[in-house]
Amino acid sequence: MAKARRSRRTLTTLVVLVLISVSVITLDESGRAGSLVSGMRSVARDVFSPVRSGVNGIIDPIGHFFAGAVHYGSLQQENQKLQLEIGQLRTQLATSKWSQEQTAQLQRLLALEKLPAVKALPPVLAQVTAYGPSNFTDTVTINKGRNTGVDVGDPVMGSNGLVGRVVEASHSTATVELITDGKSRVGVEYGPKLNQFATVAGQGPGRDLSVQLVSTNTAIHSGEPLVTDGLAGTLFPAGLPVATVSAVRSVTGAADKQVTAEPMADLSGLSYLMVLQWSGSP
């Protein structure tokens, strides 16, 4: 009797929790609780980000200390000392290369400001603080938020090209959905007169982009640049470099060509990004 009651209570608990979850998802997806959810997420990020930075600030020096202690203890012979010196020099070289790469990335990013499409939009320089918190999305977190004018929908540039767009913005941080994310769709134009249109779709981290809606009688070749089309109602302003066509394949009987493209921006080692403040009108 008691066992049956406990079993019924357990099942009731599950049913209640499932119903609450489904209701929350439904409200969020329908947009009815959109502002409430985004507000809660914004507050959570504003509270969590400084705590995370603080903990990282504590963890990193401790890690360095223990690493140093371990290395010091192992230095008993001259040979090991020399090996350590070699290691340190290599680290310095690697650090120097890393710094150079960072500087180069920043310079390439600032060079984008000369593009006519970028010139017209006020830029906000931001730094990547974390890579995607979910295994199911391809996003990065940046250290600029609403307090610096960054808002949801703003396009984000990396060195050489478009990286993605802001999908969530809190007071001091923002989440950028990369163009490789499976949900990302970018309207692009190509061809000698830029009068052909297609859609670039993300296929997940590390994978090439898929260029959709390229009909079989359209001329497109490898190495062709794709830039945002800026058509009315699109998510990006016109003229931003997006990707370069990497492969074109025609399939017999298919209405469209199978086209893949590589992002112009190097998405594997993002450090600095440029958020373009864009109101949404092309």
């Binding site: 209570r9 357990t10 608990t13 599950l14 929790l17 499932v18 609450i20 979850s21 489904v22 209701s23 929350v24 998802i25 969020d28 997806e29 609780a33 959810v37 809660m40 997420r41 959570a44 990020r45 969590f48 918190p133 979910s134 199911f136 999305t137 996003t139 999908v167 969530e168 989440t175 959905e177």
Partner: peptide, 30 residues
């Protein structure tokens, strides 16, 4: 019963910080 509650709470906390449908982790984890 306890595990479903823990899953719901942990899922809601996770959902606050990821840009996926809010409540999805809570549902799956409970």
């Amino acid at each position: 019963s306890e595990a479903a509650i823990v899953g719901f709470v942990a899922g809601m906390a996770a959902d606050l910080l990821v840009p996926t449908p809010f409540g999805l982790s809570a549902l799956a984890w409970c």
